[in-house]
Simulated assay, not measured.
Amino acid sequence: MIMGLRRYCCVAAAAAAALAAISGAALAQNYPSRNITLVLPFAAGSGTDTTTRLISQHLSQALGVGIVIENKAGANGMLAATYVARSAPDGYTLLVTTNTTHSANPYLLKSLTYDPVKDFTPIARTGDLPFMLVINPDIPANTVAELIALAKKDPGKYSYASGSSSASVSGATFARLAGIDLLHVPYKSSPPALTDVIAGRISMMFIDVPTGLPHVNAKVLKPLAVTTKRKSALLPDLPTMDDTVKGFDITSWQGYLGPSNMPKDVVVRLNAEIRKIIERPDIKSQLAERGMEAFSGTPEEFEAFLKEQLVLWEKLIADAGIEKQ
């Protein structure tokens, strides 16, 4: 009797697996047949939002369906990431995100409601969003060294805003490496943080180039340096933080992920279409104007990169002395 029951269970399990494979194949063959939703962990007007809207226009044309962008800012991107992680793995709800949700949050937040590896399917990395240090123009400093001197002269007088994990970790890293006392003022997203820096209520912030560049060009923010160790091709005249604060090297990546267990054929299709868009010279140029260094690769390369970034950001956050909140 027990052996018969075991045989029945094995047959049932095999049948279920076969049915799932057939269903997955059918899904991939007909994909996509309706609108796709791209969920973003940041507010409208952020760097991720701006670049995603450009890419999504062409992705919509390539796939022949509409693409809806849904901004779910809040909780350091955890709201958006959790929403996608719990969505059906059918390719119709995707996350366009950065290192905030998938590299930094595991080491910044005590109660993370998703696993950055197990709960997601990597689809395509789309490039890097370099950050830069900007200050209110009324602050009498034109270089990072001059800003450090001011902060050392008046400890605790100067503050930095943050609207993302990259900005938060960059600010803490700057304070530690430069040996200065800065007040951290966190925000839900970058646009309102920038508003307060421009108004002079906050002294400075590290901001992604796409979001900050229009304000720099309008002369309402003063740029001092980029956060990458090498100069940015997007801002060749701007020095690096490492020129003054040795060892400073932080950048932000961007990419597309879906819920775990997405059909392989759907992932391959999405990756191929996204890469075609990213590799077009005209799109690269338009993304560069928005402050993004665009490039891509395979889902497997993106998966390996994500795991490497978790190791890197664990060290960055530990070295900055940031405790989980």
Rank of each mutant, 00 (worst) to 15 (best):
L147Y: 03
L150H: 00
K153A: 04
K153W: 08
K153C: 01
P155M: 06
P155T: 04
G156P: 05
K157V: 02
S159I: 03
S162E: 04
G163L: 10
G163I: 07
A167R: 11
V169C: 14
A172S: 10
F174S: 06
F174N: 10
A178Q: 02
G179N: 14
L182A: 06
L182W: 11
V185D: 13
P186V: 01
Y187C: 15
Y187R: 03
Y187N: 03
S190Y: 13
A193W: 00
A193K: 06
D196H: 06
D196G: 12
V197S: 07
A199E: 09
G200I: 01
G200E: 05
R201V: 12
R201C: 06
I202P: 00
I202A: 04
I202Y: 10
M205Y: 07
M205G: 14
D208F: 12
P214Y: 03
V220S: 05
K222G: 15
A225G: 08
V226T: 12
V226N: 10
T227V: 11
K229T: 07
K229F: 15
R230E: 15
K231Q: 15
K231V: 10
S232A: 08
L234D: 08
L234H: 09
L235K: 15
P236Q: 11
L238K: 12
P239K: 08
T240K: 00
T240G: 12
M241T: 10
D243Q: 11
D243T: 11
T244H: 00
F248W: 02
D249M: 02
T251L: 09
S252L: 15
W253F: 01
Q254W: 08
Q254I: 08
G255D: 11
L257T: 02
G258A: 07
P259N: 07
S260I: 14
N261V: 01
M262E: 02
P263W: 13
K264H: 11
V266C: 06
V267S: 04
V267F: 11
R269H: 11
R269P: 12
L270Q: 01
L270H: 01
L270E: 02
L270R: 01
N271C: 07
I274Q: 01
K276F: 05
K276S: 04
